[in-house]
């Protein structure tokens, strides 16, 4: 491989880390819902897509990107509330495949609804003016918007981590994940807790959707590849581990980036090869607890 300078290598590595933070953003909502509710949310990609379309709609009304960014997780999270309350809740205690099939069907239905309303070919979503352009990092130019994504992902993960690990409400959530019956005996309304977790998970998926809109096309199918990427990250990191999702997201990003520099034709394959390798050595993923699926 000729022409690979130190600068190019550094930029490629940094690109990988930035891509990794996008993967973290995509995966965190899925990981959260699985880790705390043991619900494998197959509608994750659809919520992500809905987030992008809600973003298009709100941005069209207000013209304000920042307001859109705040509104989308609220709207998609509220959808999550309805879905949890009326669709997912009746299936608790029936085994992991029931909500899996339900959300799988829900995802398909959402995609079709958007297709009917907005058509097949996608809608434009420009990068907000204040986040356009590239920044000189010393070893190469890098898009300001992607730097912004790294920042927002960091903040988001920190807030979620502090909320779950350091607040008393987070304590209830964690206790509910471990032994819901005891929590109920203690007089806590556990279904309300699950409702909130599901809402946060879908809200974050929606946020990821609207944040991806300026980079990837806003089309009804946009969620299908994201679902795959999010699952790879979640599985590599260990189902349900927030720390695992972060480490795995960055790792997948760097592996994909380096593969595309040296063996571009294997780029698509690289993340699955990584997943296979990790699962061979640690079937529960890097940071996963054993037996969560049981």
């Amino acid at each position: 491989m000729d022409g690979i300078t130190l600068n190019l290598f550094a930029l490629q590595l940094f690109t990988g880390l930035a891509l990794g933070s996008v993967f973290v953003l995509l995966a965190v909502g899925l990981s959260l819902i699985f880790g705390l509710l043991t619900v494998v949310n197959f509608a994750h990609g659809a919520f992500y897509m809905v987030g992008a379309y809600v973003g298009v709609f709100v941005l069209g009304l207000t013209g304000n990107f920042w307001f859109t960014l705040a509104a989308v997780p609220v709207v998609v999270g509220s959808m999550g509330v309805v879905v949890e309350r009326y669709l997912v809740r009746p299936l608790y205690g029936r085994g992991i495949d029931y909500p899996l099939l339900l959300t799988f069907g829900l995802g398909m239905a959402l995609v079709e609804v958007v297709r009917i309303v907005y058509g097949l070919e996608g809608v434009p979503f420009d990068t907000p003016k204040e986040l356009r352009g590239a920044v000189d990092l010393g070893f190469g130019f890098f898009p300001l918007y992607r730097l912004f994504l790294i920042g927002i992902t960091t903040v988001l993960v920190m807030v979620l981590w502090l909320f779950i690990e350091k607040t008393s409400y987070g304590l209830v959530i964690r206790a509910g994940a471990r032994d819901p019956e005891i929590v109920r005996v203690l007089g806590i309304d556990i279904s309300k807790v699950w409702l909130i977790v599901f809402a946060i998970g879908t809200g974050v998926a929606g946020l990821a959707g609207v944040l991806s809109a300026p980079m990837r096309s806003v089309i009804p199918d946009m969620g299908s590849t994201v679902l795959v990427e999010a699952f790879v990250v979640t599985v590599v990191g260990g189902m349900g581990s927030l720390v695992g999702a972060v480490v795995a997201g960055l790792l997948v990003g760097v592996v994909v980036s380096m593969t595309s520099l040296f063996w571009p034709s294997l780029t698509d394959l690289s993340m699955f090869a990584l997943m296979a390798a990790v699962l061979l050595v640690r079937p529960q993923g890097l940071f996963g607890k054993k037996g969560l699926m049981g």
């Binding site: 930029l11 980036s257 595309s260 571009p264 780029t267």
Partner: peptide, 23 residues
């Protein structure tokens, strides 16, 4: 000066771009 191939239906092109910029 550069010839980069990408798989069909790629979503994120960021990792293919530094090589082109460097050229």
């Amino acid at each position: 000066v550069a010839e980069v191939q990408h798989p069909l239906a790629t979503k994120d092109f960021s990792t293919f771009l530094p090589r082109i910029q460097a050229a």
